[in-house]
C-alpha cells in the first residue's frame, strides 16, 4: 500500500528539519563528471572524514555553468555561500583548509554569476 498525501507532507517536514547548517554540493552531472568531479568529490570526502567535520556533502545535478565545471558550492557558517569553479584536487584541499576551516574565501576560483 502506497503512502498518503499526509505521509508525503510528513516526509517533507522531516527532511526540512534535518537539513544541516553547513554543506557542500558538487556538480555531478555528465558535464561535471567529464571535467573531473569524481576526483574532487573524493578529496572533499576524505578531508571531511580526516578532519572529523559535521558537514554534509552532496552530489547534485548541473546548475548550468558547464564551462566552469567541476563546480563546488560551499555554505558553511561564518562565511558567505559561494560557487567555486574549475575545481581540481589542489583547489579542493584549499577549500577545506581556507574556506571551511578558516572561513576565508579561496582566491581566484569563485564564480559569482
Amino acid at each position: 500500500m502506497g503512502m498518503t498525501k499526509d505521509q508525503l507532507l510528513a516526509i517533507k517536514d522531516e527532511t526540512l528539519k534535518k537539513q544541516p547548517a553547513s554543506w557542500i554540493r558538487v556538480g555531478y552531472s555528465t558535464c561535471g563528471v567529464a571535467a573531473g568531479a569524481k576526483e574532487v568529490y573524493e578529496v572533499l570526502c576524505e578531508e571531511i572524514k580526516a578532519r572529523n567535520l559535521t558537514l554534509e556533502i552532496k552530489k547534485c545535478g548541473c546548475v548550468g555553468l558547464c564551462s566552469a565545471e567541476p563546480l563546488v558550492e560551499v555554505n558553511v557558517e561564518g562565511a558567505p555561500r559561494v560557487f567555486y569553479g574549475k575545481v581540481n584536487k589542489e583547489i579542493a584541499h584549499k577549500i577545506m583548509d581556507e574556506h571551511v576551516s578558516q572561513k576565508k574565501l579561496v582566491d581566484g576560483h569563485i564564480y559569482d554569476i
Partner: peptide, 26 residues
C-alpha cells in the same frame, strides 16, 4: 525547469519531496 538542478541530490527522493515534490500529482 531547472528549479532543483544543482540544488537537490537527484538520487534522493526525500530531497525532491522536501522541495514540494509529488505535490503536483497530489
Amino acid at each position: 525547469v531547472l528549479r532543483n538542478c544543482g540544488i537537490i541530490d537527484p538520487e534522493s527522493i526525500e530531497d525532491y519531496i522536501a522541495v514540494n515534490g509529488y505535490q503536483g500529482i497530489a
